[in-house]
Design a protein around this nucleic acid. Structure first.
Length: 475
RNA sequence: GCUCGUGUGGUGUAGCUAGGUCCAUCAUAGUGGGUUUUCAUCCCGCCGACCCGGGUUCGAAUCCCGGCACGAGCACCA
């Protein structure tokens, strides 16, 4: 049940990795990588590596805060910290070393063709002139990359895979290129402008996976050609490629796709409060909205590791979340758009009810109604006969209500309410259609801490932001 | 264009490698009902699917061929 079998997995010898670009904190989609890889690591008593693939300083520049935040979010999601953390920008000498090995053993070369002209050669299945340079000359050119004689765009290191390969994506693919780290320094201070030559993902990832002893790679199927490229590189080095599995693309009905780069632009443009803005599909936003890590784990494990492109409704996630939180969520009364109701007759002076109907141990709550005033939702005042939940049946006339009986006397609708003396003004906030909406009302007095998940009677689940603010989670 | 991948109910998912035990599993959604002094939780019922067309076979969701649809890669991004 749940995850498919992991091929060639030996207990205690499994090493997996999750390698995000730290160009922002984790989003909903990243959670899949963490949860799936982490679950296998846990299941086989193996290791999970969290690796920062931070080798691009201009197209997807790393966000410095992410280096701190991602490990925390990963731990929250997993329930345990990643066993190893690897930062690519700390490992440059290893990539250089392997690049040099590639050049000296002649399965790589420094290519000085422009990107455009190489593109034409690739389509035409034609070898470029640089391909047949001897290794001494390649090492010389490599030196010019390193010392800055060459500028970004002048030269790249390519892997010799074959220009006649059927799949155009695999033909002599680029392994390292130059970046202008003077104008675009790496955001990590200790790296900054230290390097001009940077590995590209396929090379960096392949070398690092080998150095770390990764046994299994589970990633998106958009990286299938990466596997093929990297397998060719592994053959050159005489290494065995890890076992690989893929998952398809995921969309969420309510959100569509999600791009970290786009979110970053929107946040910087002031469209959102920050990465944990409740409208955003980030892990921090979901956490703040009251989604539990266990719900996220179950959600992703249930989807499994299929290569189908899917679009899932949030309702599935919410359903998992409900199961996680309901038993612990105290019931609380929040009256939207409250109206006063004067009650008269032989009713009792106080009402005691349970904090959770299924768990007596959670205690009781008591409301004082001796001043004959309660608040109910505006929508409920139109009901001529109603029952105040746990209290008594009343007949209404305008804003007055006459006591009928304490036990239920008929099947009149039951509504939630709160006594005037046991409540305070409060608001319920919820994200909808890219906006954050607010409903004003009154909330039952309580002494729950911020962050407590509550079940708002007749409304749904929410998380307390502060004493008088509830963020709606889901119904 | 070339290359690769995927197609099971509204949404996901099991089954497909070794064809029959599948009039196709489970979850979620929807719907009806029960419990309940919440439109919560819990329980029960119902609804609803093998992309299309050929072929192999006594027998195909499962194998073969051909379509079609969708997605991805072909970046000096990850």
């Amino acid at each position: 049940m749940g995850l498919p079998e992991l091929p060639n997995a030996e207990k205690g010898k499994v090493v997996l990795r999750f390698a995000p670009n730290p160009n922002g904190p984790l989003s909903f989609g990243h959670a899949r990588g963490i949860v799936i890889n982490g679950s296998y690591a846990e299941k086989f008593d193996g290791e999970l590596i969290l690796r920062f693939d931070d080798t691009d300083t201009s197209v997807k520049p790393p966000l410095i805060e992410a280096y701190q935040q991602i490990p925390k979010e990963a731990e929250w999601l997993l329930g345990f910290p990643p066993h190893r953390i690897v930062i690519a920008s700390d490992r440059m000498e290893h990539y250089y070393e392997h690049a040099e090995k590639m050049l000296s053993n002649n399965f790589g070369y420094v290519c000085t063709c422009s990107a455009e002209s190489f593109r034409e050669l690739r389509v035409a299945k034609t070898e470029c002139p640089c391909r047949n340079q001897d290794s001494d000359f390649n090492m010389e050119l490599w030196g010019k990359m390193l010392d800055g004689t060459f500028k970004p765009g002048d030269a790249v290191v390519r892997v010799k895979t074959g220009m006649e390969l059927k799949n155009p994506a695999l033909r002599d693919w680029p392994a390292l290129r130059m970046q202008d780290t003077e104008t675009n320094p790496h955001p990590r201070k200790e790296i900054g402008s230290k390097y001009r030559v940077w590995p590209l993902l396929d090379f960096q990832s392949a070398v690092e996976d080998h150095l770390q002893g990764v046994t299994h790679i589970i990633r998106g199927k958009d990286l299938m050609d990466s596997t093929r490229k990297q397998t060719l590189l592994y053959k050159h080095f005489g290494w065995d490629y890890p076992d690989t599995m893929y998952w398809g693309r995921v969309k969420v009905h309510e959100w569509g796709g999600f791009s970290t780069s786009q979110m970053r632009r929107d946040i910087e443009a002031g469209l959102f409060e920050g990465w944990d803005d409740p409208r955003l599909p980030t892990i921090s936003a979901l956490k703040n909205r009251g989604i539990t890590s266990e719900a996220l784990r179950q959600f992703w494990i249930e989807l499994g590791v299929t290569q189908k492109d899917i679009s899932v409704p949030l309702a599935t996630l919410y359903s998992h979340n409900t199961k996680q939180i309901d038993d612990d969520a105290p019931r609380i009364s929040f009256i939207r758009n409250p109206v006063k109701l004067q009650i008269s007759g032989e009713h009792q002076n106080s009402v005691t009810t349970s904090v959770h109907p299924n768990h007596e141990s959670m205690g009781t709550r008591t409301f004082d109604v001796s001043n004959h005033t309660v608040l109910i939702e505006k929508e409920d005042i139109n009901k001529p006969k109603l029952r105040l939940k746990e209290f008594a049946d009343f007949d209404l006339e305008g804003n007055s209500a006459k006591f009928v009986s304490q036990p239920r006397s008929d099947k009149r609708p039951i509504v939630h309410w709160i006594s005037e003396t046991d409540s305070h003004e409060a608001k319920l906030i919820y994200p909808e259609n890219g906006e954050i909406l607010t409903i004003d009302g009154v909330l039952e007095n309580h002494d729950y801490k911020s962050g407590t998940m509550v079940q708002i009677e007749r409304i749904g689940y929410g998380i307390l932001i502060d004493n008088s603010t509830i963020m709606f989670t889901h119904d």
